[in-house]
Amino acid sequence: MSSRPPPSANAVNGGAHHPYNHRYPPHSSSKASFKGCCCCLFLLFSLLFLIIVAAILVIVLAIKPKKPEFDLQSVGVQYLGINSTPTPTPTPTPTSYGASVSLAIRMLFTATNDNKVGIKYDESKFTVMYKGIPLGRGIVPGFYQPAHSVRQVQTTIVVDRVNLLQTDAADLLRDATMNDRVELRVLGDVGAKIRILGFTSPGVEVSVDCAIVISPRKQALTYKQCGFEGLSV
């Protein structure tokens, strides 16, 4: 007699699959490939970012940008008038008199750009002060300055009858009438940005602090000393 092999379990069960023969869900491979694509994109963007940063650093090191120079070149006195005015007090005294100041001065600034790239200046505001009291404000509109150039911009500050009281008024009247010397202070911040290959760098702020002396009799400037970012210029 020829021996036959025993029938398999699948044959006995009518060819049904064994309950323990599971297959992986078809969407698991899709998740793995999606994660792989995300990792590749992240690495690609990181590499591009590093390349851009390195290129910017190379350009900055090659150009070696310098801080912009913004200086008060001259001050022209168009008008300066000081009038004593009594303050409303029940019993007038010599110290109860104030003064009204009317002033018009033209300030000429010089912007120097020694860089190989252009500089974009924002709108700048300058304040004229007497003994810490603001008298008036002038505005210089924003402008663009090409590389290796010098540009002059100007603004006019008009003070229309600003009242000073008691001690400050007495000092101002004495300075104007007896000493012929009125000392003022010009303060302002200049915002500038360097433009490289169409890109604008973060803003750099330049502080201008000038002490000026005006002669009321001559209607002229007699002294000027400016500070540029804390350095004397």
Rank of each mutant, 00 (worst) to 15 (best):
S2A: 14
S3T: 13
P5H: 14
P7E: 04
N10Y: 14
A11R: 11
A11S: 13
V12M: 10
A16K: 10
P19S: 09
N21G: 06
R23V: 12
P25K: 05
P25V: 01
K31G: 11
A32H: 05
A32R: 07
S33K: 13
F34N: 05
K35T: 01
G36Y: 02
G36I: 00
C40F: 06
F42A: 11
L44T: 13
L44E: 09
F45D: 06
F45C: 11
L48C: 14
L50F: 05
I51N: 15
I52Y: 05
V53Q: 12
A55N: 14
I56M: 12
V58Y: 10
I59N: 14
I59E: 15
I59A: 15
I59W: 10
I59L: 15
A62I: 00
I63Y: 12
I63Q: 10
K64I: 00
K66I: 01
K67C: 02
F70T: 05
D71T: 04
D71H: 04
L72A: 12
V75T: 11
Q78C: 03
Y79R: 03
Y79T: 02
G81L: 12
I82V: 15
I82H: 14
T85H: 14
P86H: 01
P86C: 02
T87I: 06
P92E: 13
T93E: 14
S96H: 03
A99L: 01
V101A: 08
V101I: 12
L103G: 08
A104G: 07
M107F: 12
L108I: 07
L108G: 00
F109W: 08
T110L: 15
A111N: 08
A111R: 02
K116F: 01
I119P: 01
K120E: 02
Y121I: 00
E123S: 08
S124E: 09
M129Y: 08
Y130L: 00
G132Y: 04
I133N: 14
P134Y: 06
I139Q: 09
G142N: 01
F143Q: 06
Y144W: 09
A147I: 00
A147C: 05
H148W: 12
S149N: 12
V150M: 10
R151I: 06
R151P: 04
Q154H: 06
T156E: 08
D160R: 09
L164F: 14
L165W: 04
T167A: 04
T167G: 00
A169C: 06
L173E: 04
L173I: 04
R174A: 11
D175P: 01
D175S: 09
A176K: 08
T177M: 09
V182W: 02
E183G: 05
L184Q: 00
L187A: 07
D189H: 11
K193I: 00
K193N: 03
K193G: 01
I194K: 06
R195T: 04
I196K: 02
I196D: 03
L197Q: 13
G198S: 05
G198F: 03
G198A: 01
T200G: 02
T200F: 01
S201Y: 02
V204N: 03
S207Q: 04
V208L: 15
I212H: 04
V213D: 13
V213E: 13
K218L: 12
K218A: 12
Q219R: 12
Q219Y: 06
L221R: 10
T222I: 12
K224G: 07
Q225C: 07
Q225T: 11
G227L: 09
G227Q: 11
G227P: 01
G230W: 13
S232N: 11
